[in-house]
Design a protein around this nucleic acid. Structure first.
Length: 475
DNA sequence: AGCACA
């Protein structure tokens, strides 16, 4: 045990223009440090909330003599240095300058750098950004761009105080989903300060806006080409028609697979791509047709109907803003039927060669997984789907998969709905208890329910963010 | 109440 260091603090400190302050209140701010130290000289840098308890700080004077004067003053003063009534202990730091650990993004300014995590450019319109950030003051300009960090926006306010208010309220929060495209999941805002003071906006476009200069030329191609949500006078989103449908699946008591969806939606035309995803704990799917007309037909026919009888897996259909899905050609959540591709099916012998002996697109309902082999309802009902289907798998016999994902999916899928034989599927002995056997897609079946109330009724763009009361877009 | 890597 050594005693040689016992006096290091009190007696070995050599003067430094950097002072070390301790016993500060943990919430001490830079402003309070400046207030305390400024009488003794010019402060060129501060660092507060240091240490595990965030109750230490450093203050750097421009000149060594200023630091000395402060230490000397409080060494002989009857009144200790105080912050918020707490006695602050001051000594020379053992370093001679504050290493500016402040990342540039922490230096306050009137321009915010907003990184919108979890989205791609185009998912969040500049109007939505404007709406959200206008809650804290007049937004002068917005510029958006894509960097490796993701989709980012520069938001220019009048002053740093307004910018700080927006940052404090919105950093780490999420843009509410009703302002975002359907497929977007969690979307967090990461907000720091930009070093910019004044953005140079050349055009009003889908990527940039200057709200201080309405005369600025409009980049029509940029705006017209954008898939911006169109907002009507009542604030409700107008939903342009699209060849891609968004299906929200309510009351999903039973798993809905890509194959099931393909079967359901193929009844109206060629399904090009499907993507299934979760949003807010609800399963949704995007279904891509070659054209708007087909999508419109499917939407009209299927809206409000249930994939399975008994109100299960009720479809609510809207038009997606997408026109061409970018999905994995074959996964459990997505399918691209435009890509002829042999999927890697666990129980498929990799040496077995192509699954499809004939021209691939011949059979509707045929899917790479091979779970639905035919549109013949009778055959569907009579033959377990994963057993070799003569004529389709001419020379290859498949063993039963180790775990048939949805043994009755084929039999219970809508392709069989027109044939009462499907009810016999349960006799195949592979039916899981509770798996639905029939479907309810007939026109005049269960009537579509009224869509849920509009999310636009909500008051604030960011729940809990407590922006100022005025919300013109939501009145 | 005691020296800053995030």
């Amino acid at each position: 045990m050594s005693t040689s260091t016992q006096h290091q603090f009190r007696y070995t400190q050599t003067p430094s223009k950097v002072l070390h302050l301790r016993n500060l209140p943990w919430e001490c701010t830079d402003d309070e440090l400046v207030e305390l130290c400024r009488p003794f000289g010019k402060i060129v840098n501060t660092k507060c909330n240091v240490g595990a308890n965030r109750n230490q700080a450093f203050v750097e004077f421009a000149d060594l003599n200023q630091a000395i004067s402060m230490v000397s003053y409080y060494a002989s003063s009857s009144e200790p240095a105080q912050v918020r009534g707490k006695t602050v202990y001051i000594q020379y730091s053992n370093r001679h300058e504050i290493v500016n650990n402040k990342s540039p993004g922490d230096v306050p300014g009137n321009v915010l750098l907003v990184t919108i995590e979890g989205v791609e450019a185009g998912d969040v319109s500049i109007d939505v950004i404007h709406l959200v950030f206008s809650a804290f003051g007049f937004v002068h300009k917005i510029a958006t761009f894509e960097k490796t960090a993701g989709f980012q926006a520069l938001i220019q306010y009048t002053d740093a105080d307004t910018a700080a208010a927006a940052r404090n309220a919105l950093d780490g929060r999420s843009i509410p989903r009703y302002l975002l495209p359907e497929h977007v999941g969690a979307c967090h805002l990461r907000i720091s300060y930009s070093a910019h003071r004044d953005l140079n906006i050349k055009f009003q476009s889908n990527r940039s806006r200057d709200y201080t200069n309405p005369m600025l030329p409009v980049n029509h191609t940029a705006i017209d080409g954008a898939l911006q949500p169109v907002v009507g006078p009542d604030g409700k989103k107008i939903e342009p028609e699209s060849n891609v449908l968004l299906a929200s699946i309510e009351n999903m008591q039973y798993a809905v697979t890509v194959d099931v969806l393909h079967t359901v939606f193929s009844a109206f035309g060629t399904v090009q791509k499907i993507a299934i995803f979760e949003k807010n704990g609800q399963t949704q799917a995007l279904i891509q047709y070659p054209d708007v007309t087909t999508a419109a037909t499917a939407k009209e026919a299927l809206e409000g109907h249930c994939i399975y009888d008994g109100g299960y897996c009720k479809l609510h259909l809207t038009y997606s803003r997408h026109t061409d899905l970018n999905v994995k050609a074959f996964s459990d959540k997505s399918r691209d039927y435009t890509v002829p591709q042999v999927p890697a099916v666990p129980w498929q012998n990799p040496q077995a060669g192509p699954m499809y002996p004939g021209p691939a697109p011949a059979l509707q309902g045929q899917v790479p997984g091979g779970q639905m082999l035919s549109w013949d309802p009778a055959q569907q009902a009579a033959t377990p789907s994963y057993v070799s289907a003569p004529g389709t798998y001419p020379s290859h016999t498949y063993a039963a998969p180790p775990t048939p994902a949805y043994p009755t999916a084929a039999a219970s899928s809508p392709i069989a709905q027109s044939n009462p034989l499907v009810h016999n599927a349960s006799s195949m002995g592979i039916t899981q208890p509770g798996i639905p056997l029939n479907v309810n897609l007939q026109p005049g079946g269960a009537s579509p329910s009224v869509p849920a109330s509009s999310p636009l009724m909500q008051a604030s763009p960011i729940a809990g963010a407590s922006p100022p009361a005025h919300q013109p877009y939501f009145s």
